[in-house]
Design a protein around this nucleic acid. Structure first.
Length: 570
RNA sequence: CGGGGCGUAGCUCAGCCUGGUAGAGCACACGGUUCGGGACCGUGUGGUCGGAGGUUCAAAUCCUCUCGCCCCGACCA
């Protein structure tokens, strides 16, 4: 491809709305173009990367036994009403009406459509398992799209759905998909980790996320050298260190202490000369079902995802000040579990391990000290609801956990019968009995993976594409295209590289050398071949790898072979 | 949805506080000099100052409303 006839326009300045490096570089390199918040055009160069990733994904999924199809973006509301998600999905679901006022959704995911397609065809265990996938454009009307391709509203995603007659069969496919994902990300040369994850509103029993490690990642993952890894939403830990010894005799019953104006744990701890870990932090929450109270140790934070699962609810928020006063009889900021009635109390195990503690007195400007869990209050539920912290013991081996940030590029779920039971997607077993099919679903963000690759592979000059995702493999630069000898040498190299099957992008523009070099660094193809006046006089071309930018020269006649050699090491 | 910020030329931005003929750099066009790491000189093209309403002799500038975009938070597969 010749630059002069291609559609590539690089930017000298970062777009003012680009925050993260992948967004800045993809925009400056002329690969994406924002059309509206969270909605992008893939320009020709960007689309080539996307297509390369799609090809890799298709190859690995086909190998794993999945079969490709394409479902429509727009689906009738009836299917979503049948699954219950018309109600449950919320505002992220883009709902549209046609000219007859019939309601449709622009699909954010396709469980309903695929389940409908399968139930109308598959009726016997003999037809199972089956695993279907597509690579399509999805739309989720995110509250706040951001970070370019990393959290768009419209985005390209590969989604696969498998149907089974047994949990064993699902497990087999789940493992096969996990292996396929590993091969995809390995082939893209990405540094990633697969971690245990929460299933969120999709539902299901088991779930893993594939995280590309990057400081700009939106998710935090807890990881241990022993191999344990989990999204912090899900991460569990071993028992954490107890607080320092209680500095006074433990009273027979809690004593109220005047703590004027001090409601944060840090303030009260300083005031009472106690450690934050001596406190029981009391959070009053409101769910779609009830009000509830969550207790964690004073130096811990409540993990809302874990709490949601414990309370079995879909929405959860902090209760209003008025509600808190009504439920506890005291001011906000001074709540505690002692004497609380009429609400479910969920205590973290670390709270129950406290020998003695301090907490709010349910009375303005007062705290209770000498509270003994189990003696002075008894929670309805004891369950892990704390956020894992860096340095906490690994639940498997006890070593300190590390917490890193990651970009979620893939997520696989064991769905179970959540959709098949609601939508009557059933099969007959060998005895003629009807059962809902057991399902799995497997998502992989295409655009997000390309963005993650840039986050992980760049330097101060621009993108450093891993070869499998690079739009082109070689950038050929004719430094002085107006010099006939240079032009001829470059043209011959261009033709020879193409004949050798190398994806070559030929910068034949009438630009100054500096412009061409800087653009080459910015768009970041793995190998650069430069033909200039001095080199041509010596019969030489200059080659370099984008990764280290170390220049070597080779006779023009050997330049193609040298370029291929460099590509192999790219 | 709460808090904050920004909308002025294709891009990045100044001008707004304190109302008075709309600016710079880059890009683009033409001429010339240059040509191995984002050249220089000269000339030139290009803007309903996001939109609507209001105040005023006069509004990019002040006021009201509205739309869009960005950041923080809440939310979320």
């Amino acid at each position: 491809m010749r630059w002069s006839t291609y559609f590539l326009y690089t930017l000298r300045d970062n777009p003012s709305d680009a925050e993260v490096i992948s967004h800045q570089l993809l925009a400056r390199a002329g690969m994406i173009d924002k059309v509206a918040a969270g909605i992008y055009t893939y320009l020709p160069l960007g689309w080539r990367s996307v297509e390369k990733l799609q090809r890799i994904v298709r190859e690995e999924l086909n190998t794993a036994g999945a079969v490709e199809l394409v479902m429509p973006s727009v689906a009738p509301a009836e299917l979503w009403q049948e699954s219950g998600r018309w109600q449950a999905y919320g505002k992220e679901l883009l709902r549209i009406k046609d000219r007859h006022d019939r309601e449709f959704v622009f699909g954010p995911t396709h469980e309903e459509v695929i389940t409908d397609a399968v139930r109308r065809r598959v009726t016997s265990y003999r037809q199972l398992p089956t695993n279907l996938y597509q690579v399509t454009t999805k739309f989720r009307d995110e509250i706040r799209p951001r970070f370019g391709l990393m959290r768009g509203r419209e985005f390209i995603m590969k989604d696969a759905y498998s149907f089974h007659a047994s949990a064993e069969s699902l497990d087999e496919t789940y493992r096969a998909m996990e292996r396929a994902y590993r091969r995809v990300f390995d082939r893209c040369k990405l540094s990633y980790t697969a971690v245990e994850a929460d299933t969120g509103n999709i539902g299901g029993s088991e779930s893993h996320e594939f995280m590309v490690l990057a400081s700009t990642g939106e998710d935090a993952v807890a990881a241990c050298a022993c191999g344990y890894g989990a999204n912090v939403e899900k991460a569990i830990t071993g028992p954490i260190a107890p607080p320092p010894a209680w500095p006074a005799p433990v009273p027979a019953k809690p004593e109220a202490v005047h703590t004027p104006g001090a409601s944060s744990v840090a303030d009260v701890a300083a005031f009472l000369k106690l450690d934050a870990a001596h406190f029981i932090k009391t959070m009053i929450v409101e769910t779609d079902k009830e009000f509830a109270v969550a207790l964690v140790r004073g130096d811990d934070e409540v993990n809302e995802v874990k709490l949601k699962n414990v309370l079995d609810c879909t929405h959860l928020a902090l209760a209003s000040e008025a509600r808190i006063e009504q439920l506890t009889g005291g001011a906000m900021g001074f709540s505690g579990p002692v004497g609380l009635t009429g609400v479910r109390v969920v205590a973290d195990p670390e709270v129950m391990r406290l020998a003695v503690a301090a907490t709010g007195a349910n009375r303005a400007d007062h705290h209770l000290v000498g509270v003994v869990p189990g003696r002075d209050f008894t929670p309805e539920v004891v369950a892990d609801v704390r956020v894992a912290r860096i340095g906490d013991p690994c639940p498997r081996c006890g070593a300190p956990l590390d917490i890193k940030r990651g970009i979620e590029v893939g997520h696989i779920f064991k769905l179970g019968i959540k959709y098949s039971s609601k939508m009557a997607c059933n099969y007959l077993d060998e005895k003629g009995l009807s059962h809902p099919m057991i399902m799995g679903c497997y998502g992989l963000g295409i655009g997000r993976t390309v963005a993650a690759a840039v986050e992980q592979n760049h330097d101060e000059h621009g993108i450093v594409w891993p070869r499998p995702l690079a739009p082109f493999e070689v950038e050929l630069i004719a430094l002085n295209p107006d010099v006939p000898a240079v032009r001829d040498a470059a043209e011959k190299l261009y033709a020879d590289l193409q004949a050798a099957g190398v994806e070559v992008f030929y910068d034949d523009r009438d630009e100054r050398p500096g412009v061409k070099f800087n653009d080459a660094d910015l768009i970041g193809f793995p190998v650069r071949v430069v033909v200039g006046k001095k080199g041509v006089e010596l019969g030489q071309a200059e080659l370099s790898l984008r990764r280290d930018r170390v220049k070597v020269t080779a006779p023009l006649a050997d330049a193609v072979a040298k370029a291929r050699e460099l590509l192999e090491s790219a």
